[in-house]
Simulated scan of single mutants.
Amino acid sequence: MKKKICVVINNRANYARCKSLLVELKKDKRFELSIIAGASTLLDKYGLAKKVIENDGFKIKKFIYSIVEGEVPITMAKSTGLGIMELSTSFIEIKPDYVVVIADRFENISVAIAASYMNIKLVHIQGGEITGSIDESVRHAITKFAHIHFPATNNAKKIIKQLGEKKENIHVVGCPSLDLIKKNNLNVNQKFFDLRPSLNGILKFKKGYILVVFHPVTTEFKTIEKQIKELIKVIDILIKKNFQIIWLWPNVDAGSDIVSKQIRIYNMRQKKNIFLYKNFTPEDYIKILKNSKLIMGNSSSGIREASYLGVHAINIGSRQNNREKGKNVHDVSCDANKILKVFNKKIKLRSCPKSKLYGQGNAAKQIIRILFKKKINIKKEFKRI
């Protein structure tokens, strides 16, 4: 009898983190895969990731519209509640044996709550990590709902055990997004960018470029405008020095509208050498990251994928505080002068150390093997240390 697995994808990062798993589940006849696409994956302003999913050959079983517009703290809370209501209806129709939830974020706490109250076994990928935002609280909360855990690192496993989870239910597999790196040719050329024009032009590949990904930090909502303006000061100086900038649109967290508004204002004033994108396919993003001079901002891809690839990362602000980092990462506060000082050092370095801190690039196959063999009790018990 097939095991019914439902994977909920609520944002573009979720898809990148689980695509390799979806590929394995789809072709494995021991499993019946259902995909739910929700939240910002359905919104054009965030790149309409559902189209990327469908173009990759996956059939989406259900669409969950749960994002309350406004991108402020109260709309995040309301979106979480709406997500619980809509997901519970979908789960009762699909009747999965397992629901897979990825990492953290407010959209995904809805998945954990809905599945748990409906007595559906919850599989959590990338739990146990420490960061400097509300996402950490959500991540640990999902851990307490989950029945089986697939963290990326040994340190994350230790933290999950500290939260009272049984060691036999914790399996270190690495980050599934690294599977895509291992399987794909990462070389690009001018034709690659010709076929992928930005919102305001085509990048000249031979000139090189800096990749910028900066998201709002929800717990610092009152200072987000100041932070993005500091970063724009840096970008303005780099553009005037003839650096090309690929800037990826922020996520849907509270403060997103503030960040995107400042990006639009700057783009209207300075159109040269800046290339804005709403979204990439997971493979395209990896290629763009790999071929960049460095990545700047506060995305976890500067910590995970960039470390594995050997790409320098300037990690700005508190969003990734205390996350395990490779030697490619340089932390800096959100101050234009300090960022520029770090940039001027990093841009001169020709090589960057690689790290397998977040895995070997074989996470999906390990997850499949364990899920098929594992017998899970729906009743959880707290394990004292």
Results as ranks from 00 to 15, higher is better:
M1G: 13
K2M: 11
K3N: 10
K4M: 05
K4A: 06
C6E: 06
N10P: 03
R17T: 13
L25D: 08
R30W: 06
F31V: 03
S40D: 12
S40P: 10
L42K: 03
A49S: 15
I53H: 03
N55H: 08
K62Q: 10
I64F: 00
T80D: 05
G81F: 07
E86N: 13
S88R: 01
S88V: 11
T89K: 15
D97E: 06
V101Q: 03
F106G: 07
E107H: 04
N108P: 00
A112K: 07
A112E: 07
A114Y: 10
M118T: 10
M118P: 06
V123W: 10
H124R: 04
E129P: 11
T131K: 09
E136M: 12
S137W: 02
V138R: 09
K144N: 13
I148K: 10
F150T: 04
F150L: 03
P151A: 07
P151W: 10
I159T: 11
Q162A: 05
L163A: 09
G164H: 09
E168G: 06
P176H: 04
V188I: 15
R196G: 10
L199N: 12
K204Y: 07
F205V: 05
Y209E: 04
V217C: 05
E220S: 10
F243K: 12
I245D: 03
V252L: 07
G255L: 04
S256K: 00
D257N: 14
R264M: 14
M268S: 15
K271N: 13
T281K: 12
N291F: 01
N291Y: 02
S301A: 15
A306E: 02
S307V: 08
I314T: 01
G317N: 06
S318N: 14
R319Y: 06
E324A: 08
K327V: 09
N328P: 02
N328K: 01
D335Q: 13
K341Y: 12
F343S: 08
K348I: 09
R350I: 14
S351M: 10
I370E: 00
K375D: 12
K380I: 15
